[in-house]
Design a binder for these strands. Sequence first.
RNA 1: GCCCCGGUAGUUCAACGGAUAGAACAACGGCCUUCUAAGCCGUGGAUCUAGGUUCGAUUCCUAGCCGGGGUACCA
Length: 530
Amino acid sequence: METTKTKLVEAILKSLKSSKLVFKGDLQVSYPNIDSHGDYTTNVAMQIANLEANNPLETAEKLKASLLGNKFINKTFSKIEVAKPGFINFFFSPEFLSNKANKLLKSRKEYGLTKLGKGKSVQVEFISANPTGPLTLGNGRGGFYGDVLGNVLKRVGYDVQKEYLVNDAGNQIKILGHSVLKDQEAQYKGQYIDDLNKELGSEKDVKLVGKKAAEIILNDLIKKTVKEKMQITFDDWFHEEKELKASGKIDKIIKKVKEGNHTYEKDKALWFKSEELGDTRDRVLIKSNGDTTYLAQDFAYAESKFGERRFDKGIYVWGADHHGDVSGLLNAVKVLGYEGRAEVILTQFVKLIKDGKEVRMSKRSGDYVTMSELIDLVGHDVVRFIFLMYSNSTHMEFDLSIAEEKSEKNPVYNVQYVSARMNSILNQIEISESRIGNSKINLDEECEINLVRALLKWPEILEEISTSFMVQLLPKYAIEIANNFHRFYDKCRVISNGKIDPSRVKLLQLTQRIYKEILTTIGISIPDKM
RNA sequence: GCCCCGGUAGUUCAACGGAUAGAACAACGGCCUUCUAAGCCGUGGAUCUAGGUUCGAUUCCUAGCCGGGGUACCA
């Protein structure tokens, strides 16, 4: 399915050509921020005027004249308007809106499914926290982000795999062992370390203790939190030790990189020539003691993603504290011949405020609130929705006191209240009534029209997120629908003095169907009543 | 020092170089004898500073100021 927006873009491109207007670059079609500017707007006339130093209004008029000859345009819009500096605004025709609504009503398919990514595979790798402690709020942020990004990509047609990389082979496992044994080299602290100490404290072999502890942490803390608390299902848990180290893939890839003349030895260590590829410095692959580094693992992991498993694209969702490693990774990907396939997204930190003070979060000090605890405190839907509202590049502040005390006033309740209200109305109606069964949606009132206008954006929002990775647009969109629905609820009664409006029942059913898709994509529950 | 991110309403956040900078919460004033008032209607309220580029800058550039993170043969 092609979205209306895509068709409009195509129509404009066609008209530009036939009007002999030259435009290079990305054609921008967007939603105006006020209703009086229509349903879509484009600034292309002003951009052309910019290049050619002519009058944008004239260009806009010329383009408009050509667009009026387009069949799709005439079918879809009842008004095209050239506005002030040079915008061209498009207004949906009432017939288009009601035809579209009725067509959707009949269709069995989910509305928010498109073919943008058809035939392409993408892997989203996220959280990937070391198995050395419980998941933090920072891990949680990347978790919800990656989960929903994966959902969105799936909807626009990509073959998506969600993966968690388990770092169970590095030096941190040894440190975990020391920590559990509480010896001189201990670093991690916290209740879970004390518990592990009781269980494994009598062992002698540090490495073995670390390995066992990591397994327990992975199963009892991480996997449980991910599945039961965060409600995320990974397609794959990729174990570094088993998949990369033990199978010799790290050694193999290093050999290949060596042969490609991308390395040198210095101070008994093996270095990757990253600086000549634009990095700030060269990076160690094999330490002088013979251990491989994180970067060496990244080489092997990238080879696994792009070489062996052949993902067209790999999205790495990392915490911002890893930003220094990004160019190392991207250069590794480049050297392996997969340039352009890896995309790194950094999520900034979560600052937790409690009683007006910042709670410092650190695994090494043991002083933190875990993701699991936070969800227990305020509920999964609330945490997920609020976390998702933030752009990944924003430093977010989560006030625990407010979340606890005012969780009822969170936007997620407003959003979920919609489904409770819809359900409540529909429960009171005999759907089997033949009169309703054959009814069509008529859009007469503003509250009905605006609801449909908002609903029609759904596939377009998904496509936009799939290319911009701006996951925060999704909860924002849910709020937009919610606001439109609540207005509809207030002004356009479905049942009035015992009389049922069949058209509105149909509109309600359509809204309910699409709304379920939206909340499912976000990953929050759809309550029948509240 | 260098690198990354941020500085927008009382608060937490949005905003592909575009039109009158949006929401949510908070504040204030209305609305429950008809589908759930966790709602609706209305009011007030914001782009860190100084330059620059542009027809147009919250957005891009330069220089500051403030906050967070990174800067390892740790992961």
